[in-house]
Design a protein around this nucleic acid. Structure first.
Length: 510
RNA sequence: GCGGGCGUAGCUCAGGGGUAGAGCAUCACCUUGCCAAGGUGGGGGUCGUGAGUUCGAAUCUCAUCGCCCGCUCCA
């Protein structure tokens, strides 16, 4: 309860201060689509920068890539997205539950299979050692009838699903008298097609336009460039390719603020390794990634690993790094051992060899892949939600503060004159002009100093520099800390180096 | 798609048939000067949209649109 209210407060705060706006708001918005505002884009860029530097700059065997969102349609055939994520859905009107129509049919077949097994077991009991299973399967009338039924259903499934004949799928469900496991009724809606991928058309001449998809993950752009990068960069296994980019998924339900959107941004790194060594690297990257998170200081207790038991079609090991969001622990990042599935698929579909000659082993092989994949928008929400605090102060007043990691804050420092006269504003401008060469700075001379401090607290600015009467005499200013609210008096000459030491991303990368 | 909630100023909300309100924010001026909340004045809303009832609708009815929450899917 309290946590959900918290999410509402965060959404309001994000909008009020220009971090995140509902998309197309003047037209009443577009479901689950958001725009990053003037402060949001800064925070987002800083997160990207931290990730990119820690991957590409800090690892000499990892290089970057920026591949196109449009890709050849065969890409998605090879990756399995075309076949695996075209789901026909059907609703039961009584239980209000939604099912995948093909799963309902498969479950039906499973039930018949179970019947056959039951008959076989009966046979074993009756005939003992003399029981000939093959003969039994070939002759028992019950079994034959059920086998024929399975074959018939499978035939019709192939026929209808293969041709996207949704009415045929519906008729099949009705004919087989399949009931909803929850309500037990046959009160079904029509079957509707659900496509995970957004499609559009390439080619300006209508009629000969080809359907292309907006990529549902950035990973495939990396796989199809494996050879390009390996050869032109003279990369030796093990090596990695990192990429930050938008991806699109037509989620049935896209909700919970920026946690699940149809248009989102991923930060992915695919690491190519020697077959057989993938588990070593899988462990390595799990450790690296959690360390990356830890350095931000959002709270160790807010993270946990969740190992996948049911693995995707391409993986032989997978773990999520989950974060304690306002809605509870949810997936923030995935570390997956993708085997050689993707490269092999692309070899098969493209007819090109996607292999690496390993001089040490003196042989060619298709590398195995270990992937780290983090949702940038989710990371943004993790940082924002764990930084958002309402504090009760001693004098009974309240303070809303974003205790963002200093290196990620949109503004690193706010410069302000104590008064609007006596040369204070001029001096403050002068200081700011020097600092802005290195840092994003804010300037504020409106309202009382206390009010200005609070404003900066609300947007997470870690430091405020105040020009006062003493500044005019001895060239010193006060620097005020967002988290402790304490002030130090320092010389203007050392200001740049003091701030640099406190807000630099170097602190995170070390 | 189903169920529930909600649409009034930039934000948070009040008002429930009789000419649109408050606090905060914003802008200008005066005052003040180190941790929100001094003064005066100003700008800003056809109360989501459309229809109906009524002399009169933000308010009642119906429809519609949008957002939020839950369920089904999720590499």
């Amino acid at each position: 309860m309290q946590k959900e209210d918290n999410l509402k407060d965060i959404i309001s705060h994000a909008k009020e201060y220009g971090f995140v706006f509902p998309s197309s708001e003047i037209y009443d918005g577009l479901s689950a689509t958001y725009d990053y505002g003037q402060l949001g884009v800064e925070l987002k860029n800083n997160i990207k920068s931290y990730w990119w530097k820690s991957m590409v700059q800090m690892n000499e065997n990892i290089v970057g890539l920026d591949s196109a969102i449009f890709m050849h349609p065969k890409t998605w055939k090879a990756s399995g997205h075309v076949d695996a994520f075209n789901d026909p859905l059907i609703d039961n009107k009584d239980s209000k539950k939604r099912y995948r129509a093909d799963v309902l049919l498969e479950e039906y077949i499973e039930k018949i299979r179970a019947k056959i097994d039951k008959d076989v077991n009966k046979g074993i009991k009756r005939f003992g050692d003399d029981f000939d299973k093959n003969q039994f399967l070939a002759t028992n009338p019950n079994v034959l009838r059920n086998m024929a039924k399975i074959e018939d259903v499978e035939e019709r499934m192939k026929d209808t699903l293969g041709k996207d004949d949704l009415e045929g799928v519906y008729n099949l469900i009705i004919d087989l008298e399949i009931v909803c496991p929850v309500s037990g009724t046959k009160n079904w809606t029509e079957v509707r097609q659900f496509n995970l991928m957004f499609s559009t058309e390439l080619g300006s001449v209508s009629g000969d336009a080809a359907t292309i998809y907006l990529r549902p993950e950035t990973a495939q752009g990396i796989f199809v460039n494996f050879l390009n990068v390996q050869k032109t960069g003279r990369m030796k296994i093990p090596f990695g390719i990192a990429q930050i980019g938008k991806a699109f998924r037509n989620e049935i339900v896209a909700r919970q603020f920026i946690f699940r959107m149809r248009e989102f941004e991923q930060m992915e790194m695919q690491f190519f390794v020697r077959p057989g060594e993938e588990m070593k690297w899988y462990e390595h990257w799990k450790n690296q990634r959690i360390a990356w998170h830890s350095k931000l200081g959002l709270g160790e207790e807010n993270y946990r690993f969740h190992d996948h038991i049911k693995l995707a079609h391409y993986a032989n090991a997978a773990a999520d790094i989950e974060f304690n969001f306002p809605m509870g622990f949810k997936e923030l990042e995935g570390v997956h051992s993708r085997t050689d599935f993707d490269l092999k698929q692309h070899e098969e579909h493209s007819g090109k060899k996607l292999q690496f000659f390993d001089p040490e082993m003196n042989q060619n092989y298709v590398p195995y892949v270990v992937e780290t994949s983090i949702g940038l928008d989710r990371m943004f929400l993790a940082v924002l939600s764990s930084s958002f605090k309402t504090e009760k102060l001693e004098n009974d007043s309240e303070r809303v503060v974003l205790s963002l990691p200093a290196a990620l804050a949109p503004f690193k420092v706010a410069v302000m004159p104590l008064t609007k006269k006596d040369g204070h504003p001029e001096k403050a401008r002068e200081i700011m002009n020097a600092l802005r060469l290195e840092h994003n700075c804010a300037y504020d001379e409106k309202d009382s100093p206390g009010k200005r401090y609070r404003r900066q607290d609300a947007i997470g600015t870690p430091y405020c520099v105040m020009v006062d009467h003493q500044t005019m005499e001895d060239n010193t200013v006060t620097i005020r800390d967002r988290d402790t609210m304490e002030q130090d008096r320092v010389s203007i000459d050392e200001l740049a180096s003091i701030i640099e030491s406190k807000v630099s991303m170097t602190n995170l990368l070390r």
